[in-house]
Simulated scan of single mutants.
Amino acid sequence: MNLELSEEQEAVRRLAADFVAREVAPHVVAWDRAEEVDRGIVKKLGDLGFLGLTVPEEYGGSGG
């Protein structure tokens, strides 16, 4: 049994890691101190297709 990530899964993993490094990590301390997160991050996640990953495409998800 091969448990390695497929090329597509690895690409999603890299995209997520890059997103976090660019959009989350620089703000982590401020968000923690404020005890809130900038809600604009949700739209950015949606723009990248991270919302609805487990929802079938026929219902508007990504089908991942």
Rank of each mutant, 00 (worst) to 15 (best):
V55P: 04
G52A: 04
G52P: 05
G60I: 02
L45K: 02
V55D: 08
L5C: 05
A17L: 10
V24N: 10
A11Y: 06
F50W: 10
E23M: 07
E8Y: 14
E57F: 01
A21H: 12
G49V: 03
R33M: 09
E23W: 04
A30I: 07
V55L: 12
Y59F: 14
I41F: 11
N2V: 00
D47R: 04
L3K: 14
L53T: 09
R22V: 00
Y59A: 08
G64F: 14
R22I: 00
D32K: 13
E23R: 12
R13E: 12
D47N: 06
V20L: 12
L53N: 10
R14P: 00
R33F: 02
G60Y: 06
Y59G: 02
D47L: 01
D32Q: 12
S6T: 15
L45Q: 01
G64L: 10
A16R: 08
L51A: 04
L53M: 15
G61R: 05
V42M: 11
V29K: 14
A11F: 07
K43Q: 09
D47E: 15
Y59M: 07
F50V: 02
P26Q: 02
A11G: 09
A34Q: 11
V20W: 11
S6I: 06
H27W: 13
S6A: 10
S6E: 08
F19C: 02
E7P: 08
A21L: 11
V28Y: 14
A34K: 08
E35D: 14
Y59L: 10
D47Q: 09
V55Q: 09
P26W: 10
F50C: 04
S6V: 05
E35G: 12
E10Y: 08
I41G: 02
H27P: 01
G64Y: 13
L3H: 15
F50Q: 03
D32E: 09
L15G: 07
P56N: 07
P26A: 00
N2T: 04
K43H: 11
E35L: 14
K43M: 06
N2G: 02
M1S: 15
G52L: 03
E58R: 13
P56Y: 02
G63L: 06
A21R: 13
G52N: 06
V12K: 10
